[in-house]
Simulated assay, not measured.
Amino acid sequence: MKTEIGIKPANTAEIAKSLNILLADEHVLYIKTRKAHWNVEGADFLTIHRFLEEQYKQLESIIDDIAERIRTIGHYAEATLAGFLAETHLSEESRAKNDSAGFMKSLLGDHETIIIHLRENIDRYAEEWKDAGTSDFITGLMETHEKMAWMLRAHLK
């Protein structure tokens, strides 16, 4: 059944495309956070292990919310690893050392990349694509990533 929510179909297609790129970024960041959670080593292991668990659980929720937003506007969410890797702004990484500071710096950089991307597109959703709902949704995600980045940054002091 056709989705009739007061946004032109061409606009919902662009919104879905943009949100699927964000979904790809979130999945890559989620996997990198899980990798850090599983593999971190050092005297601070338990503290960082627990901290990273909180972070990946937040990312799980974000991922679900983005996919549901895509469905809400009448499109389908990307759901393949190949699709995520083709669309993401982030990159996978290999690490020789599994120290908490190295993982934290890498994850912080990814959060900051997502924050910048979100900030650059907030107005586009509302103004260009006439979707204040997604603009508001993206603003909330940006604020969540800003707080997660702050927590990572605080660990690096």
Rank of each mutant, 00 (worst) to 15 (best):
A67G: 13
A16L: 04
D44G: 06
M148G: 07
R95H: 14
K147G: 12
I62E: 04
T139A: 15
I115H: 07
A86M: 02
L81S: 06
A16W: 00
I31D: 04
K147C: 03
K130T: 12
E87H: 11
K130D: 15
M148A: 15
S18Q: 13
W38R: 12
K157Y: 11
A132Q: 15
R71C: 06
W38Q: 13
M142Y: 07
K17T: 10
T72Q: 06
H89I: 03
A101Y: 04
E78M: 03
K105I: 04
D131H: 08
G133F: 07
E146H: 07
R50Y: 07
I122R: 04
H75W: 03
P9Y: 03
R69L: 02
V40H: 10
I138F: 09
Y56C: 07
A77E: 01
A126K: 13
L107N: 06
M151A: 15
I63E: 00
G109I: 02
F84H: 08
A149C: 12
I21M: 03
E143I: 10
E54M: 10
R124K: 09
S100M: 04
Q55Y: 03
E87T: 06
H89K: 09
L23A: 09
D44I: 11
A82F: 00
T47C: 10
S100Q: 12
I114L: 04
L90I: 01
D123R: 04
S91I: 01
H155E: 15
Y76K: 02
R34W: 08
Y76D: 02
L46S: 13
A43L: 14
R69Y: 00
R71H: 11
E26A: 13
I63N: 02
I5L: 15
R124Y: 04
K130Y: 10
A16I: 02
E112C: 01
P9M: 05
D65R: 07
E128I: 10
A86T: 12
L59R: 11
A16Q: 00
Y76T: 04
S91R: 05
